[in-house]
Design a binder for these strands. Structure first.
Lengths: 148, 148
DNA sequence: ATTGAAATGCAGATGTT
DNA sequence: AACATCTGCATTTCAAT
């Protein structure tokens, strides 16, 4: 992980479809050299994939929320299975503390959110926070030291 | 937003670097037809960008946490400015409820996390949940109705 | 369908340990 | 000296009009 690889990751964070030729110009290397570096980053598991970024509002999901779930002790396995099956769940974090799980969910309407919470409430006590804005959204921290 | 566009979004969610030719094979269209659809999705703001996915552990960030911040009423503006400046913050959500902000942070060590919380605590009461696993991580819900 | 650009594979060169 | 990495070139595939 030298400085050039960090630059490549940061550039690909900003635009995951940059060509090797374009990346090469930005890091002062030729396209094959960049391709080789990126290939190694992929093979070593540093890069796990590439994805599109979507505006949820524009695809009919105007409501997103964080749902903390204090799962009943005997229902953890069942809860996890449910969450992985629920279509509205965008992210699920298994965390320390009384709220064992925090979900990020996206729904088309408040009634859909209500229906979703009804399903979760059988297995957990929930606390819902509606997301109003997202001032920061990154792929990784900015502070990663650039040592070799 | 017809079915084909949904398929394209889902395919690009899985691999944001698929070529138009590859996408075309998967949705039974020619490459130029796909390129035109993707261009329109970009222009209309449905697609907001493309990005790489990175394994944080492999880049030296073994610790991630969710930090709920109950910001002091007079310090909201200051808090927001701080959060947008903090390198460790990966995501920041402004939410309803007493915890006005929820952060996702990534750090190299627990002492770095401690230092980060020290900075936040001047402007808010915090509650930290260490992320153990992430059973679900998607770009959008799966349940988006495929109406035209 | 045609033109220009990009990706890929390979041989030779360079530089580092 | 050996290994890794870069360059330059040729071929194939892709993008764009």
């Amino acid at each position: 992980m030298d400085k050039t690889n960090w630059k490549l990751l940061k550039l690909l964070e900003g635009n995951g479809r940059l060509t090797y030729a374009e990346l090469g110009k930005l890091v002062h290397l030729t396209a094959p050299a960049v391709a080789e570096r990126v290939r190694k980053l992929e093979e070593s598991g540093v890069i796990t994939g590439y994805s599109v970024q979507v505006n949820l509002e524009k695809v009919g999901i105007p409501i997103t929320a964080l749902v903390e779930c204090q799962v009943y002790r005997t229902k953890e396995r069942e809860f996890k299975a449910l969450v992985m099956d629920l279509e509205e769940v965008i992210e699920c974090y298994n965390v320390t503390g009384p709220y064992a799980f925090v979900l990020k969910v996206g729904v088309k309407s408040m009634s859909k959110l209500d229906a979703l919470l009804e399903r979760l409430i059988d297995l957990s006590d929930t606390n819902t926070m509606m997301i109003m804005t997202t001032p920061v959204k990154r792929i990784m921290p900015l502070n990663i030291a650039q040592e070799d």
